[in-house]
Nucleic acid binder design. Sequence first.
DNA 1: AGACTTATCTACCACTCGATACAAAACTTG
DNA 2: CAAGTTTTGTATCGAGTGGTAGATAAGTCT
Lengths: 204, 204
Amino acid sequence: MVMGRPRSFDTDKALDEAMEVFWRHGYDGASLAMLTKAMGIKAPSLYAAFGSKEGLLKAALDRYAQRRCEHMRHVLAGATARDVAERFLSSIAESHTDPANPPGCLLVQGGLACGAGSENIPFELASRRAQTEADLRERFAQAQRDGDLAPEADPAALARFLSTIASGMGVLASSGADRDALREVARVSLSAFARCREAGGVPS
Amino acid sequence: MVMGRPRSFDTDKALDEAMEVFWRHGYDGASLAMLTKAMGIKAPSLYAAFGSKEGLLKAALDRYAQRRCEHMRHVLAGATARDVAERFLSSIAESHTDPANPPGCLLVQGGLACGAGSENIPFELASRRAQTEADLRERFAQAQRDGDLAPEADPAALARFLSTIASGMGVLASSGADRDALREVARVSLSAFARCREAGGVPS
DNA sequence: AGACTTATCTACCACTCGATACAAAACTTG
DNA sequence: CAAGTTTTGTATCGAGTGGTAGATAAGTCT
């Protein structure tokens, strides 16, 4: 064991609580008082462990990504491009309305626009959202190489479309929409995907 | 004219400046100092005219709605349901990337999640977003009565789908996506709409 | 003119913000 | 044990928060 007084709190458990606060109130709306109360620690412990409020957010985002990573692995393991899209959309519909979490998506609720001194937070969140889109794009490019997706199809456009739906579903869920509403959006969206996949392009 | 010293600033002009600040920084991120500087007035004038920070936001939202109302009138005047959807999506793609405004949509950027004391702002924004969805739903219901939309189609689901896309495009635009990217999302989305309109439902 | 009404400006309110100095506490090492 | 190392709690920092009191300016009314 390392020297010194041992930490009296569990880092991951504390991060889960911080994540929830950022999720529910956004970066600017999450005050240090809220965070320390939820995490069950005092400010100096927070700063010793995470450096700053922004550092705490990044650590929470890392943990969030780690959680979602398992889901994405399952999504990307779909046999066909359409299967991947279907898994992605329904996984979003479920996770964004999981009663165990605040509604919506941390990467959207966390802060699309922030105040002075937090200008880089929206950028940070955007780059994490872009990661998911990149995963989908790469998977669709692979599907295209496999002949599962038409050569005229546009993997980047399809990935962006799905990613946009996911963000929109985050907004929808945060407005109080229920799970069935999101599932319905997922179904309609999937039909767009299927159509583009079949046609390889988009009808005028 | 009314008694007393006349107002030295133009209310609508000041609201436009306030709108931009809320749009770019969100409700929590927009400080009184930012707002008064942008509006070119001092705090007491602001409070005399709008009552509170929340009152100012609501006034700005009213003006935003007023602006968008013209666009929506054009959208809803589309000859067919599909025409309406096409007009809606392309109008969103253009307006959310209009260089004259901050990127995205005020009703999304304004604040999906807020801090203590601003809990009702996300609710306020959600109710304004719901208005657009309701307009679309009603127009589609009319299209159904006109026989332009299949009897098995679901006007509410189609309206929610389009509204979700619009929110997603707001998030996308705020991440720095350019106009062509949004147009592409609009095209893909429109194909989903067309398919649902034809089939009257959604393929499994 | 002078009374009345409304807006504007300076200065300031109590409070909260994110962040930290410092000393006591809790552990490992010698 | 004592020395060294890290964490914890208390108490507080300066800056910024939304909001306002009170005096002054700029108009309309009779």
